[in-house]
């Protein structure tokens, strides 16, 4: 497993299939004031690996995903795919160039499918743009991908509105898979679905990963689901990475106080244990991501905050083998 943070940004040796180095995405909200949505993320994703990315709403998970695929321009930092640096600002030819390498599955199964297109047109869109399929084999290929994601080939002449949320998400997955990419960014693919359908979609993704050798970045806010699907887990807080490690390690032995409280807030399925558990509720508000002050971002809410936390940014470092965090407690 590759999870060493790139303390040497100049190193050319590719460690994973996707290397994110000190990536920043700032939005200008008004003249001179910026929203630091993604603020210096460093992450390495190995081939055929599932990395789960968690964090509360608004911490920049989706922005990170969209910046990775080029939907947002990068403010600074770089993303290296198989040793090749991706452009910081995508032209439409760049999208075409990388579309067969990196694809994305979107959060909202209702707005991610064009209501004016049939399922056949939606799934065949990518291969037709790339002229991969001949027009007489479209039906056969679309049928193949529909069966692959657990739908019937009869569904191809229907419109998106005729399907349920889970079925729509499968169509979205089939659309992304039809170009046979190597990396798929899953931007909260299950958060708009109900629990039984979540399990179906997660199992489908797991199966596709095994059979097609996919690499997944699985963005979600459901901790136990992320632990279930991913090999490694990354935790984000307010645009920055607080902890990265093997999924079980992060889930059961979290290092960072934020991860600890995040996991503690996850309800225990056993009611006996749940009742006897002590609940520590985080105090305070998330600071505004606009014009951040120096110091640890979590310092204002951290139960273990020290004086050094108020003024010095913690360094992201490996604390245990393969398990890194950004906290002064482990400095």
């Amino acid at each position: 497993m590759n999870n060493q943070n790139s303390s040497t940004p100049g190193s050319t040796l590719p460690k994973g299939i996707l290397e994110i180095r000190n990536l920043k995405k700032h939005f200008e909200v008004s003249k001179g004031s910026f929203l630091h949505a993604v603020d210096g993320i460093t992450l390495s994703i190995g081939k055929n690996e599932v990395v789960g990315l968690v964090g509360e709403s608004g911490c920049g998970k989706s922005t990170l995903g969209r910046t990775l695929v080029g939907l947002y321009d990068k403010s600074s930092g770089e993303v290296v795919y198989q040793g090749e640096k991706l452009p910081s600002r995508y032209a439409s030819s760049d999208f075409k160039k990388y579309s067969r390498e990196i694809q994305m599955i979107f959060q909202d199964p209702y707005s991610s499918l064009n209501p004016r297109m049939t399922v056949r047109e939606i799934i065949a869109e990518g291969p037709m743009i790339h002229k991969l399929w001949k027009s007489d084999e479209v039906n056969e290929k679309v049928g193949f991908w529909l069966k692959r994601v657990g739908l019937s080939a009869d569904h191809m002449s229907r419109y998106a509105h005729e399907f349920s949320g889970g079925q729509r998400q499968r169509i979205g997955i089939a659309r992304a898979l039809a170009l046979e990419p190597k990396v798929i960014i899953c931007d909260e693919p299950i958060s708009a679905l109900d629990v039984s359908v979540q399990a179906q979609v997660v199992n489908l993704l797991g199966e596709l990963k095994r059979t097609m050798g996919l690499t997944l970045l699985f963005i979600a806010h459901d901790l136990s689901m992320v632990r279930y699907v991913s090999d490694r887990m990354a935790v984000m807080y307010l645009g920055s990475m607080v902890e990265v490690g093997p999924a079980n390690e992060v889930y059961f032995r979290p290092l960072h106080p934020y991860t600890q409280s995040l996991i503690a807030s996850n309800p225990e399925p056993d009611p006996e244990k749940e009742r006897s558990r002590t609940h520590t509720v985080l105090k305070g508000e998330i600071p505004s991501p606009i014009n951040l002050k120096p110091g640890c971002r979590f310092a204002g809410r951290c139960p273990k905050a020290m004086t050094v936390c108020q003024s010095v940014d913690p360094v992201f470092r490996e604390v245990k083998p393969g398990h890194s965090t950004a906290c002064h407690l482990y400095a």
Partner: peptide, 13 residues
């Protein structure tokens, strides 16, 4: 909207 983003990612001009 997400379907336009998706189409962009598929390489649409």
């Amino acid at each position: 909207s997400e379907f336009v983003m998706a189409s962009k990612l598929l390489g649409a001009r």
